[in-house]
């Protein structure tokens, strides 16, 4: 079990768990964490699963590919640590990771 802490923009905190190989988006959806739309179903094609990964954790993640970068580049609320949740895959190193949800999805 890998623990993930989702913080909503309002401040509400959801401590949930996922398993290796699941995406951050799967974990949020499976645990009814609000604030992610995921319109394209996890295909890196819509940008509506935007999350912001805390700095300490961001460098533990695999680099975003060009597609993900392109969509994040078009996201009005982008910040340092912005990622698409459907493209971040869980592994043991990410146990305890903190992720913030943006105020709006694009």
């Amino acid at each position: 079990m890998i623990k993930i802490i989702f913080k909503e923009h309002s401040g509400a905190v959801h401590e949930v768990t996922g398993t290796e190989g699941e995406s951050l988006m799967d974990v949020a959806m499976n645990n009814m964490v609000p604030g992610i739309d995921g319109d394209c179903g996890g295909d890196c094609a819509c940008g509506t699963c935007h999350v912001i990964v805390a700095a300490d954790w961001a460098n533990k993640l695999a680099q975003a590919n060009g597609e993900e970068d392109a969509l994040i580049g078009m996201t009005p609320d982008k910040q340092d640590g912005s990622r698409l949740a459907c493209q971040v895959v869980l592994n043991g190193d990410l146990d305890g990771m903190e992720v913030t949800l943006p105020e709006f999805q694009m």
């Binding site: 105020e103 999805q105 694009m106």
Partner: peptide
């Protein structure tokens, strides 16, 4: 196509960005 697409979209986007919409 890019790069022109991204440049122009990013310039026009704030007009319909969710913050403005609120």
């Amino acid at each position: 196509d890019n790069p022109r697409h991204d440049e122009q979209r990013v310039a026009a986007q704030p007009v319909v960005a969710p913050k403005n919409l609120a």
